[in-house]
C-alpha cells in the first residue's frame, strides 16, 4: 500500500450485544494529520477503532485503506488498547513487550532478527525507556507503561497508528513525550488516530477531530468541528465548552 493512502469509513454500523453502538458513520482520514476521536462516555469511540480494524463484526458498511479493506491489511496497523485491557501483573519485561511489536513481521517459526532487536532498541530510546528494558512491566508507573506500549507501536513500523485513551493514568512528562511522538509520526506522513476524552487544553494538539455520539456529529479540521452547536449535540448541552481552544 502506498504510504499516502487514506482511510475511508463508509456507512459503518456496529452492534454491541444486540444494542446499536454506532450508526451509519462515514468519514475520511488523511495521512499527515493528528486525528482525535472525541465524544462522551459510551459514545462508541473505542468501538469505532475496533470496528475499523475488524476486531468486531460490522452490521453494515466497510472500511477501506487505499483500495482494499483495512481489516485485510493489519500488517500496516499498530494498535494500543486501553490500559484497563491489560493485565499489568503479567510476567513480562519491558523488552518482552516491545518485541511483541516485531512478532507479526518476524513470521511463524522464525526467531527475531538483529534488525528487529535494533528497531525495538531505537523505539525504547525514542520514548526514553531504554534504561528500563529489563524491568518487569508491573514495576513501572502508569506513564512508563504507556510509553512502553508506544515503543511497541513504533517498533511495528506501521503506517496507521491507533491509540485508545493513551493519556489515562499518565503523568505530564509522559503526555508531552507522547504528543511529541504523535506529532513526528503525523509529519512523517503516517495516519494517527487517538481516542481521547479530555476536552481541556490538550485538545489543541489535534489537527483534526472526529466527534461522535453513537452517530457522527462532525469530522474535519478542529476549528470546524469544535462549534458550540456540535458540542451541544455530542454532549447534550451539559458541557462547559472552552471556546478559545477552537
Amino acid at each position: 500500500m502506498t504510504p499516502s493512502a487514506k482511510i475511508i469509513v463508509d456507512h459503518l454500523s456496529v452492534n454491541y450485544r444486540d444494542v446499536q453502538a454506532l450508526r451509519n458513520i462515514s468519514f475520511t482520514v488523511q495521512p499527515g494529520h493528528l486525528v482525535g476521536i472525541f465524544g462522551p462516555n459510551g459514545a462508541g469511540k473505542s468501538t469505532l477503532i475496533q470496528a475499523m480494524l475488524g476486531l468486531m463484526p460490522l452490521v453494515t458498511g466497510r472500511v477501506l485503506y487505499g483500495d482494499e479493506e483495512l481489516a485485510h491489511q493489519l500488517a500496516q496497523v499498530a494498535y494500543v488498547p486501553q490500559r484497563s485491557q491489560i493485565d499489568w501483573t503479567f510476567p513480562a519485561t519491558v523488552w518482552d513487550v516491545v518485541m511483541m511489536g516485531r512478532v507479526k513481521k518476524t513470521g511463524w517459526l522464525n526467531r527475531f532478527s538483529t534488525a528487529s532487536r535494533q528497531l525495538a532498541q531505537q523505539a525504547l530510546g525514542r520514548v526514553g525507556m531504554l534504561e528500563f528494558r529489563d524491568r518487569p512491566i508491573g514495576a513501572l508507573s502508569g506513564g512508563q507503561q504507556q510509553r512502553v506500549f508506544l515503543a511497541r507501536a513504533l517498533a511495528q513500523e506501521a503506517e496507521i497508528f491507533c491509540f485508545d485513551e493513551p493519556f489515562v493514568g499518565v503523568d505530564q512528562k509522559t503526555e508531552a513525550v507522547i504528543f511529541q511522538i504523535f506529532r513526528e509520526l503525523a509529519e512523517a506522513g503516517k495516519i494517527v488516530l487517538v481516542v481521547n476524552h479530555d476536552l481541556g487544553e490538550s485538545i489543541t494538539n489535534f489537527d483534526h477531530l472526529i466527534l461522535l455520539n453513537k452517530e457522527l456529529i462532525a469530522a474535519g479540521p478542529r476549528p470546524w468541528v469544535l462549534t458550540r452547536e456540535n458540542m451541544a449535540r455530542a454532549y447534550g448541552g451539559h458541557i462547559t465548552f472552552f471556546g478559545h481552544v477552537a
Binding site: L53, L55, L74, A75, V77, Y79, Q85, M100, V103, K104
Partner: peptide, 13 residues
C-alpha cells in the same frame, strides 16, 4: 503476545 494482549495481537494481524 496473544496471552498478554489478545486485542493488540489480533490488531497486528
Amino acid at each position: 503476545f496473544y496471552s498478554f494482549d489478545p486485542l493488540g495481537a489480533q490488531a497486528s494481524g
